[in-house]
Computed example of a mutant assay.
Amino acid sequence: MEKFTKITGVAAPMPIVNVDTDMIIPKDYLKTIKRTGLGKGLFAEMRYLDDGAENPDFVLNKPAYRKAQILVAGDNFGCGSSREHAPWALLDFGIHCVISTSFADIFYNNCFKNGILPVVVSPEDLEKLMDDASRGANATLTVDLEAMEIRGPDGGVVKFDLDEFRRHCLLNGLDDIGLTLQKSKSIDNFEKSYAESRPWA
């Protein structure tokens, strides 16, 4: 998993509440277990018209937001089913951070396991950040995990809190496998000792 320390990028506004995982990545795209290639299906039902053409009114199809790295979203983002394809699709598209007032628990946990930073802010701060994100090409935010702050295009700063263990994992690029591999020496020593004490096993 890639380390997350700080990103500066375009933030796309999505002032929609209760964006569920089926909206993020519709069920038609769940046939694969690969983490790559899902970006094309991100928000597919809103992003494409019935004939398959791009919906010009959808935010990520607008020229200013095509390479957005940050999403500023409404309350309760990521609710619905527990599909891990949702963070996979966001990351494959290029979204590395989602900012909202609240997230569904399973989606929130899955973000950390895939290198995405979900940031919880107050309604007042979300309103400011949504305004920043609505500026099109000038909607550039800096999300600094080390300082735990978001800096806006006009110099405004929004502070956020995060569990220290989750912060440590993101800063060091550690998913569950990475955490386990940190104990590889102890695991090897245990297996060697176990084999020596039980040669018949």
Rank of each mutant, 00 (worst) to 15 (best):
A11G: 02
A12S: 02
A12W: 00
P13M: 05
M14C: 04
P15N: 00
I16T: 07
I16A: 04
I16N: 04
V17H: 08
V17R: 03
V19K: 00
V19I: 14
D20M: 04
D20C: 05
D20L: 02
D20H: 01
T21S: 13
T21I: 10
D22M: 02
M23A: 07
I24K: 00
I24M: 03
I25K: 02
I25Y: 05
K27G: 12
K27L: 04
K27H: 12
D28K: 06
Y29E: 05
K31C: 10
T32P: 08
T32N: 03
I33M: 07
I33N: 05
I33F: 11
K34A: 10
K34D: 13
R35Q: 08
T36D: 09
T36R: 00
G37F: 05
G37A: 02
G39P: 11
G39S: 06
G39T: 03
G39R: 01
K40R: 04
G41T: 09
G41Q: 06
F43Q: 06
E45Y: 15
E45R: 11
E45T: 14
M46I: 11
M46Y: 15
R47I: 14
R47T: 11
R47Y: 11
Y48C: 09
L49T: 11
L49K: 04
L49Q: 14
D50A: 14
D50V: 10
D51H: 07
D51Q: 06
A53M: 12
A53S: 15
N55R: 01
N55D: 15
N55H: 13
N55E: 11
N55L: 03
P56Y: 01
D57L: 10
F58N: 04
V59D: 07
V59G: 02
V59A: 05
V59C: 07
L60Q: 02
N61L: 12
N61Y: 11
K62V: 15
K62R: 06
P63V: 05
P63D: 02
P63T: 04
P63A: 03
A64P: 11
Y65T: 07
Y65V: 07
K67M: 02
K67W: 01
A68E: 00
Q69P: 15
I70T: 04
I70P: 00
G74T: 08
G74W: 09
D75S: 11
D75Y: 10
D75H: 09
D75N: 14
N76L: 05
N76K: 03
F77S: 06
F77N: 08
F77M: 03
C79S: 11
C79M: 07
G80L: 07
G80K: 00
S81Q: 11
S81N: 07
S81Y: 07
S81V: 13
S82D: 06
R83D: 11
E84L: 15
E84K: 05
E84V: 15
A86W: 09
A86M: 12
